[in-house]
Amino acid sequence: MSCIDTIQSYAFRSLGFGERMLPRTDFTLCEHFTLIGSGMIWNVYYGVLAILTGFLFANLLAVAKNSNSRWARKPAEWFIFLFRGSPLFIQFFFGYFLFLSLKGVSPMFNPLTSAALGALIVLFLNTSAYSAEIFYGALRSIPKGDVEAADAYGFTGWFRFRRIMFPTMMRLAWPAYTNEAIFLFHATTLVFFSGFPAWRQKGDALYYANYFADKTFNPFVPYPILAFYFILLTLVIIWIFGVINKRLNKHLPQAAVKKLKIRPNLIR
């Protein structure tokens, strides 16, 4: 089988398309690259969706934690503590367990036990907590002058938050948030490794790397390939976040931008 054929049969294997049977003998490098790459689809899926949804929830949590009302502050504080204080490994376990019990309550909850939705929810909650802490820290360090100036102009409530506080908060939080995004993508490898079962041999990149290591008895080929893909992915994330960072800092003099970047900010 030529490499083109391999790509045709296995490029979307992780989604269930193409050849049903995984290669079983005479493993080629091409098969390694294709299948592990196919698995990366899931890592990107989890990472992108969890970051997008988690971003919104994290903002809400950060504002709640900063609130004067006990009723808003306490739940946010506990949520953040619970998810930042426990290993993702254990969160996956309890997530899967909870979803299984819910399934008994009503068939409505059936999709939750699948990795595609269940693991996404756990990752979403996890990244929300970590991001919320970063945003909260940034919110606390917004220069007093900015807020006073907004008050002087008569800005209040949502408008003041949207126009003055939010952009500054993002600007301050961005380097640390970039780190969080990288970590989240790395954390997606835990989904099939310890949390959710793999159906019909549809798994993520680590699942296929593991498959090859198991079949070829040689860990030194599949895992470095996996590492290669993740280094590429990390570079892409850094690039995208860098572009956004530039936009966030567009209005500042260049020296100030530099100063912001080196803030040894909260990393995850």
Partner: peptide, 19 residues
């Protein structure tokens, strides 16, 4: 810094110890 930070720790642990 760049390479080790770019690789998920699990992937690293799975082959690095043997290496």
């Amino acid at each position: 810094i760049a390479i080790v930070r770019g690789v998920p720790d699990i992937a690293f642990f799975l082959f690095f110890v043997i290496a």
